[in-house]
Design a protein around this nucleic acid. Sequence first.
DNA 1: TTGAAAGCGCTAACAC
DNA 2: GTGTTAGCGCTTTCAA
Lengths: 360, 360
Amino acid sequence: MRKKKRSPKTAEDSSALKSTRLDIRAVAKHANVSIATVSRVTNHVPTVAPHLAEKVWQVVKELNYSPNAQARALVSGRSKVFGVLISEITNPFFPELIQGFEEVAVELGYELLIGSTNYNLDHMKRCVQRMLDRKVDGVAVMTFGIEAPLLDHLAAHDIPLVFIDVAPKTGRVCSIQVDYDSGIRQAVQHLVMLGHRDIAFITGPLQLGSAQARRGAFLSAAKGIGIKRHSSYLCEGDHTLEGGINQAQKLFHLKRPPTAIMCSNDMTAMGVLHAAAHCGLRIPSNLSVVGFDDIDIARYCVPPLSTVRMSRRKLARAAFMALKSLADGTPKDDIVVSTIQTELVVRESTASPSVLQQAG
Amino acid sequence: MRKKKRSPKTAEDSSALKSTRLDIRAVAKHANVSIATVSRVTNHVPTVAPHLAEKVWQVVKELNYSPNAQARALVSGRSKVFGVLISEITNPFFPELIQGFEEVAVELGYELLIGSTNYNLDHMKRCVQRMLDRKVDGVAVMTFGIEAPLLDHLAAHDIPLVFIDVAPKTGRVCSIQVDYDSGIRQAVQHLVMLGHRDIAFITGPLQLGSAQARRGAFLSAAKGIGIKRHSSYLCEGDHTLEGGINQAQKLFHLKRPPTAIMCSNDMTAMGVLHAAAHCGLRIPSNLSVVGFDDIDIARYCVPPLSTVRMSRRKLARAAFMALKSLADGTPKDDIVVSTIQTELVVRESTASPSVLQQAG
DNA sequence: TTGAAAGCGCTAACAC
DNA sequence: GTGTTAGCGCTTTCAA
């Protein structure tokens, strides 16, 4: 007798009824129904007689039963896990985004599988494979840029995907739009009204759609307001603090340094702050700095950073809901995603340029 | 005929051999072996004839097969997922810890289920339940403090647990020790050698073991070096930036304010930096500040923060490996965990107290 | 409306 | 050393 039947009922454990594992069968037995009924109840299938449903819930509470997510996933083909692909978790922008994701995920019974690419193609490949192996129901690609081949890999598995800004035209894919223009225009106007004319902009890595979009927003705002452009005032950073330091130093050594620097994100701006302190430049009296994102620490920088706010919470929620719709089978054309707004937050890193500086 | 047998071979899909799902059976068929052999090969079971193993690997590559983690987990009872319980992901300390975890996890084929308690008991309960539902193989409790009842809940499920500093005596539980003393003693010595005598310490939330440990290390270092203590120089923060601001303001308004402030973590120190800037105090000329942890941004603070470094990467690896040993069934007494060392990193937030200040 | 039973993709016990 | 098969805990037909 090889068979290890469910309830062996052999001599050794004859009386030990309570030693049975806390599974759907235990609940069924205690509630005097079939496991199918228990399944229906825990899945809120409406075609169950109310008194039976109540009885089942009661037993569920009593035994403290909670369905095995693995088994559910295996049989239903839906893991209720979403992958979140980010660049690097130590960049404060991402944790704040993840926080937003976690919030909705918990509400809706999902879990997150977070993968950091660390700007490395191999890492990115591995992340995608991990997500595929764990059978995620969809992936939110929040990374700063993604390699096309990877996208193909994901798309080949017909996995729902959500992006920021750029949406490939492929299958079950959609994107969240951000209105960079309004916030960035407000920032440029703010600086111009303070008297700045020599305004530099440190971009993000330009292979990224969102970095391009931010730069584009700055250029068109500057043009719209009519300030003239020096090509040396537009430099390419990489959205890291170190990148901000490097670009700031370049700008400081210009014959005619800018009186204000706008940045494609707050990390870059923090780099500028750091570089300025290092060179003995006072902020905002000698130099005005504006960031982008309004990450949590921005308000605690020295001095507190004026920046353009983009709600990570809203962004995350929008991305999650879009992903869920896709995963639930909603045709992509029926999914409406509201654009994420941006707005200027004035703190203490911006002021009128000093007369000295103006003359300089 | 209700049965939906594996390969129906009915008229409709008779010839469509390639339409079969990419599962272990497909690999077995292509390699002319049984699924058991495929399973053995992918699990690196050594009792497989080399030529067969090779053949299987070849087919695996060819078909790009990757085992279904859900199914594996269900049948083996091991999900290869560890829970990581943290306080809040937006506190930079935690992402850096998670980065360390992710690194090892990927190496060893594990995934992480991250749960943020947000200092909230309900959140914490929900996190624990999520981890239980997803059948994690263990939990790393990296949170600042955990409620005893929750611990019981976890322990009741006999789940391997790893903690920092404090280890409950229960079942499969162990802890990682940190040598706070050496780094903190170095910091106190550094300040004393610079000429400071009035040194304040802002603690973390004292219900936490690790906050207590850090305070204890400071007190004994101060005592050892023989500087006298003012009780008003010891105040309780909460390991947040805001807490640092509040406590710093209290200290600034003392009749005889301290010339140096040490903090239980870097976030607190950043709060002090912020508060000082707000009050027009120059750092380090008017006030020296020392943090703890050496989080990534510490070196980019204005001014760059002198702090005590504790490697989050090492901490995470140690915790992970201990957890894995526990999960693999190693008796807890056989698990050796090396103590995490700490060391002072001098940057620009510390200097000799100014004469003016001394007299003040 | 409810129950019986197939089977998700895999591992592991057992037979050979 | 390799194959056969039970069954992990659940969802989901299908029959009643």
